[in-house]
Write a protein that binds this DNA or RNA. Sequence first.
DNA 1: TATGAATGAGCGTTCATTCAT
DNA 2: TATGAATGAACGCTCATTCAT
Lengths: 192, 192, 192, 192
Amino acid sequence: MATQKDFDKKEAIFAATLELVSKHGFHSSPMSEVAKQANVAAGTIYHYFKSKDDLICALYVRLKEKTTETLLKQDDANKHYRERIRSFYLQNFRYFTQNPKEFYFLEQFSNSPFIQAIPRQDLQRLDQPIYDFLRKAVFMQAVRDIPPKIMISMLLGSVGSLVKLQLSGDFQLTSSDIEQAFFACWDGIKRQ
Amino acid sequence: MATQKDFDKKEAIFAATLELVSKHGFHSSPMSEVAKQANVAAGTIYHYFKSKDDLICALYVRLKEKTTETLLKQDDANKHYRERIRSFYLQNFRYFTQNPKEFYFLEQFSNSPFIQAIPRQDLQRLDQPIYDFLRKAVFMQAVRDIPPKIMISMLLGSVGSLVKLQLSGDFQLTSSDIEQAFFACWDGIKRQ
Amino acid sequence: MATQKDFDKKEAIFAATLELVSKHGFHSSPMSEVAKQANVAAGTIYHYFKSKDDLICALYVRLKEKTTETLLKQDDANKHYRERIRSFYLQNFRYFTQNPKEFYFLEQFSNSPFIQAIPRQDLQRLDQPIYDFLRKAVFMQAVRDIPPKIMISMLLGSVGSLVKLQLSGDFQLTSSDIEQAFFACWDGIKRQ
Amino acid sequence: MATQKDFDKKEAIFAATLELVSKHGFHSSPMSEVAKQANVAAGTIYHYFKSKDDLICALYVRLKEKTTETLLKQDDANKHYRERIRSFYLQNFRYFTQNPKEFYFLEQFSNSPFIQAIPRQDLQRLDQPIYDFLRKAVFMQAVRDIPPKIMISMLLGSVGSLVKLQLSGDFQLTSSDIEQAFFACWDGIKRQ
DNA sequence: TATGAATGAGCGTTCATTCAT
DNA sequence: TATGAATGAACGCTCATTCAT
């Protein structure tokens, strides 16, 4: 079926882009290489994406959606907020250490001028689910009344740093290290 | 004096590179533009740097050294560790929000495959002063016995996230927000 | 037909390179000029050749093959060796005086460090047919038992010098001059 | 003494140019490298030579003069022409196999478009001594009445080919090979 | 005379993008 | 829709040459 084939090609292009960009960076990932890796012709990419920038931005959005969904899917509203946030933190660490390509791509992208090409409201939409999750925690008085944006920044900044540390190969983090790191964060944001 | 002139040219090239790369990214900062911005001929850059990569790596090392030095210069060994770490955290925030070009450059660089071009031991040397500072804090039992690498990751991850938030323009952080964020961190790492 | 078009483009690039290099030398024949002369875009050359060096080496191999084939094609195994070698000598002179571009290109190439880029066994393969022709003459006791490599050197050195003399415009060689030069060579190598 | 110093510098520049050009070719021998190798500043070369082309042409003329002089110096007018020409041939072979840099430089130069930069009469002047030597041999009826230009071409073409063969490393020529080659030539040009 | 930092035109090459098939 | 040869602007970089010292 054509639709399935389209899907496959688009997927293949995304996968190839992720592979190459995460390893070599944006400008060392020519479209011709992406095409080769995806087993399509160079021109074919332009049936699915307007330009290289468009492809990269689309991949960013896609990965953001996917990771956010994955990370919140396992949330269990019946548990205590501490447990839910702990689980979110740990999942985050696990997900990215197990999917380093996605981590590298997202970090690279969000620290590059590329990100300015994404409309602000789209960026907001991508963060919305996590944002909602934490705002509710504040509302439920599970955590201190810190603006959710700050809280996200702190949590994700912390976990992101740890992922980077782990992936650098300089340092093997044990699960106790992660727990410890989480509780350090938690002690910082929990309602005393 | 020749030495002064050399210094000026090299400085001008560094400044131009910082300006352009922080604004447009590595690959949207051609050497010809760097030269124009620095008021030198394109070829002149190659008297000071072997290649574009070399220039960018040299600038990274230089900025790292400068910021580390600046951030630790104001450390007062007579104060309590809480105060010293607080000051470090706050200075960090202040320095980077006031020097956004340096922040963007460093973030972009350290999240790009470029960083692999810097020998591991050089990277270690750049982080050594901060590392020493925190290791001593652990040794003095001022903070919990968390591996310093993790502690650095958490502190800098946290403050980096806040700087990004502030610079994004989405959110105006008050100094009370920063204090709050610091104390959250501190509560996490202090010896209870 | 695509294959024909490819052939045409590659041929046009070869012809343009021969034209320019024979007239101006390697380094005064920029790729941009080659492209212009061949009526293709600069980038197109790189579909057919990896680099400028690759193009030039490929052209050398091609011309060597073509001239060797041309020179041996007219050989008539029924004739006496004296006649066959005479014919080879005369053809050689005629071919290169009538195709000065090829002569200048080949001379330039084989006297430049470029030639070291061609694997030794490839060079040997190119000379093999002439080598075989002369070795057989030795074997048949038509000529003295001089190592064929030396004999080739002498014959081709002699005729090459004459071609250079003729093309220099300093001196108009008559066909009697060439005959005379050949017989001088022949008297030197024939079995007495 | 200044004059001596000048001489030394100019010599050093010539020596450096010969060294580099014979090994790497004209366009892989930048003036900056020549300067380094000669232990002078880049600008200094321009006190002695108008341009790179000028330097290379001057070196050509110089080497031509020197080799011609060397080769004719040992001529002994008392001997038979056969002996004198034999000696010239053998010296030629010996000189260039022992001075491969000069051989490679001269071959490269005389097969490149560079040579067109040298006025025709200068070229003639350089060849004049050898030309005279052989013309006299014709006049004395020692050799056949072949135009001296052709005779030079044949002799030098022959010996040049052998030098190339020897220097290529493919083939070790014995002194008997050279003798044989000379007598082949001689049989070709001697008055029967 | 000697220096070598500075110049900038010009090079070889890449690669995002197009378009005839 | 899919192809991939072709394009050519733009890049990083070299190097012959100049000139203030």
